[in-house]
Design a protein around this nucleic acid. Structure first.
Lengths: 332, 332
DNA sequence: AACCTGGATTGAAACGCTACAACTCATCCC
DNA sequence: GGGATGAGTTGTAGCGTTTCAATCCAGGTT
């Protein structure tokens, strides 16, 4: 039951271990006949190279850390799948880590990955800063960030173009003839809130609408419940707008619940557009028009960037911005 | 920039490498003063044990394969998180693998995990059979299945008690005074369809209702679209029942869409209950009552079982059945 | 016939750690 | 005082690869 080692293969094939190693790593240097002989031995014995030994010898493993806030976040789930797909095809292995946005957990995971001599990490940084980046660098870990930051030219990152997304959503609503639109955003300190709203404003400007044609409702969190409240606030306003763009699908779904409950019809009385296009968007009572983000592509791209950094010495750090697209459904 | 090795620590602390190794693995055998001296050296040098070397030496790694159909399946996402949480606390590492129910991919992942000398796998088997189990066993991989099978007493497994869940849902509806209930199930060859429906029948029997008090509508897949169709079928029937239990939330959401679109009110005209309690259930236009399955606990339990099998030589294989519970919302 | 050339093969030293047998040296007991 | 005890420590042989300098040898040149 003991695993077959390279030595047994060598013996069986009547060559040295070095030759077997060459067969594994640089088959082209072997004479064709030798190559066949070794292949035969490998097959017959069912030889499986020991990853740990390899790693010990060449100083690094094949693992890549996927360090996320929480895989259960549907967006991150997609990212995880995309990253895994890509890495699998290039012979890498994905180590899943959930930080819960806890810097301590994050740190422990990074230490662990370091011990494993991982090739790098794809990470949603819990607290991004110059210091953080430098510290991780100092550990000797390569990384690709899931974060929209122009501020770190020395790090690869991938992100969604939130401004473009917001603009799409608003443009869509304006094109449908809505005079005024209400934009429900999350906490002002979050990049997403700001950018998606900015896109909304840009759309209004581009359409030649006055600055005040978009009302802003800011809520404290990107949750269903906050969405419901926002919906109530909108309905309660003296002259509610006929279109609302929410910076996130959960908010939009919440708004829709309030609106429906109040007996108003969607989209006839009020049109709603969300952002993220989570599964719930399509399955909602009135299917929700939403800005779709291809999380799979994002994860895959991040993986690609990391692999490039690992393999290409002349690698230039880059930031990839993904343009989302609008998925029109019944809510608008 | 080269990593610190155990030798350097030993030298710094003025002890042998064996002592440092003992410090790492069996600190209790060291004299307290020695222990402190080594700890000091470790800290100062920032020593990080090389996982690969360890693994090479003791013959197995710390990785555990998490081999799933697709992490994007919301249920499996929860499982993944649960497993990761548990394994992390016991110092194991999770290697994510998505098979897409493809036996070939599955096989390749298992080979890979074998090369990594993984401690075992938590797996949703693409095709479960005696042969499959034996083959994996032969590879020398320990495993825990996410599968409801009484047929393999020599394998650990975890699963949801679908019968109990179906019963809960139906009992709930009957208790609300509905005379007849329609049960929308998926393909008859799927265990879930059968068991959940069985639970439904059991509830009816227990409530003293006649056999024919539950109508069965079977559809070809667990999808939103099939749910819509089922909804239409139900509405078209001469005397539609006032309550419907769907073997899955997507079906339920589809049914709700059809019902709403036809101008009927939920739950007043028709009550609906789903199964799985996916996120969309809570965010639906009319929040959906659903049978909740604690996927996190399931994943965590599976991980626990595997760890037990690895650590305890006298381990007895077990099957864990998780009872779901009903989450009552507005749809019923 | 002596000498080159270069493709093919190989021996053996790392890589960093664990485990075990062997050793040291106070302490205790008769 | 001699010996036994046992807690604490250590030397070193693997673990399975990779890599590189060294070797081998068939064929071509002069």
């Amino acid at each position: 039951m003991k695993a077959v080692s390279i030595r047994q293969v060598a013996q069986k094939a009547g060559v040295s271990v070095a030759t077997v190693s060459n067969f594994l790593n640089r088959p082209e240097v072997l004479a064709p006949t030798t190559r066949d002989r070794v292949r035969e031995a490998v097959d017959v014995l069912g030889y499986r190279p020991n990853q740990a030994a390899r790693q010990l010898s060449n100083g690094h493993g094949t693992g890549v850390g996927l360090v996320l806030f929480d895989v259960r976040n549907p967006f991150l789930t997609g990212v995880a799948r995309g990253a895994e797909d890509h890495l699998h095809t290039v012979g890498r292995t994905v180590v899943l880590c959930n930080t819960d946005v806890d810097a301590g957990k994050e740190k422990r995971y990074l230490e662990m990955l370091l011990q494993q001599q991982a090739q790098g990490v794809l990470i949603t940084p819990s607290e991004l800063s110059r210091g953080w980046v430098d510290r991780v660098r100092a550990l000797g870990l390569r990384m690709v960030l899931f974060h929209n930051s122009t501020d770190y030219p020395d790090v690869c990152s991938v992100a969604v173009d939130d401004v473009a997304g917001g603009e799409m959503a608003a443009t869509h609503l304006l094109a449908r003839g809505h005079e005024r639109i209400t934009c429900v955003t999350g906490p002002a300190h979050m990049r997403q809130s700001v950018d998606r709203l900015a896109g909304c404003h840009r759309a209004a400007a581009l359409a030649g609408r006055p600055e005040d044609s978009v009302d802003v409702v800011e809520v404290g969190a990107f949750t269903l419940d906050q969405g419901r409240r926002a919906g109530e606030r909108i309905l309660a306003s003296p002259k509610p707008s006929t279109a609302v763009f929410c910076a996130n699908d959960l908010l939009a779904l919440g708004v829709m619940q309030s609106v429906t409950r109040a007996g108003r019809r969607i989209p006839d009385d009020i049109a709603v557009v969300g952002f993220d296009d989570i599964e719930s968007a399509a399955t909602a009572g009135v299917p929700l028009t939403s800005v779709h983000v291809d999380s799979h592509a994002l994860g895959s791209a991040a993986a690609g960037l990391l692999v490039e950094e690992v393999e290409d010495p002349g690698h230039r750090h880059r930031r990839l911005l993904f343009a989302p697209h609008l998925v029109e459904r019944a809510s608008s």
